[in-house]
Design a protein around this nucleic acid. Structure first.
Lengths: 157, 157
DNA sequence: ACTATTAATGGTCAAAGAAAGTCAACCCCA
DNA sequence: TGGGGTTGACTTTCTTTGACCATTAATAGT
């Protein structure tokens, strides 16, 4: 079995117990598996991405660590996945607005969240000198991030 | 846990009780935590700045001490306005993070809103090929928009 | 009283240390 | 033989410490 797979399973086992999230030391884990620390990054970036239903955070420096948060597989996550598909590499303001309305109507996100999202990706917000295609790409990224944040929220209840 | 974090929490716990401000002896505190006195300065300068919602004063010489004051805001609208002013033409991810934490701690925005904002202006979101200064400008615009949205929310209550 | 000295504080800054991130080269097997 | 897996050199970020500096209160000397 590949080392990466072993590490992946190890982390998933940790998440089984802790349920919601897990904190780990990159160097300790690398030591434990006798591999290069960057191997851990590889595992995270190939198996613990939002697409896989996870978000990661980290801190450098003394006492630093990596935190892996699982987004529960619920109807929310399914929806997020779908939306993920719908957003793609770029999205216009109108398309975003439509998505936001739909999500609100289905009660997946709150009105407060909807408003924040709309404002965040409004043309007002993005009124900086960059080409339109880049703006659409940017809007897509911001939307994805915000939906991820919302997904985490809906799970913490 | 990091020493700095421990000291930060210790000070915040003191502030909880006294509500408004706290006076402490740098050397005593350093002694208590068995660290270099300058560690206290580090904690103050990284976690108790005006950006974090605090100001500090100090007096040297015999009987000298450090005073940490929590900036009190007259009203939510006032604070939102102030912060709005503080954003200017550009803002980094870290500065934004500080603002968001401050607003959350004061109960002006919810955790849900805070998370959404953090994610919206994360470097992840803004990972498109544009120069850093433009990113900072963009982040400023998005932050302003989102704060505006939040302000409208809190008005409606 | 007035000044000089000393002791008691806190401040600054740069270097060392302790993580994690990045990236490109290599490795290997289906 | 091409794409996923592995490694290590280099970078970035955050923390901790210590040597040296600045200021002030207390005290000693006149």
């Amino acid at each position: 079995m590949r080392l990466s797979d072993t590490i992946e399973q190890f982390i998933k086992a940790m998440l089984e117990q802790d349920e919601y999230d897990v904190e780990l030391k990159r160097n300790e884990l690398a030591e434990y598996f006798s591999c290069a620390p960057s191997q851990i990054n590889y595992v995270l970036s190939t198996r613990f991405t939002p697409d896989h239903g996870y978000v990661t955070e980290s801190r450098r420096g003394g006492g630093g660590c990596i935190r892996i948060i699982r987004i529960k597989s619920s109807s929310q996550e399914q929806l997020l996945y779908t939306i993920h598909q719908r957003i793609g590499d770029g999205i216009t303001e109108q398309e975003s607005a439509r998505l936001i309305v739909q999500l609100t109507e289905r009660g997946i996100i709150s009105c407060s969240q909807a408003k924040l999202m709309s404002y965040a990706i409004s043309s007002q917000s993005l009124a900086v000198p960059i080409p339109d295609p880049v703006k659409d790409a940017l809007r897509a990224r911001i939307m994805r991030s915000m939906l991820l944040a919302a997904a985490q929220e809906s799970e913490e209840i």
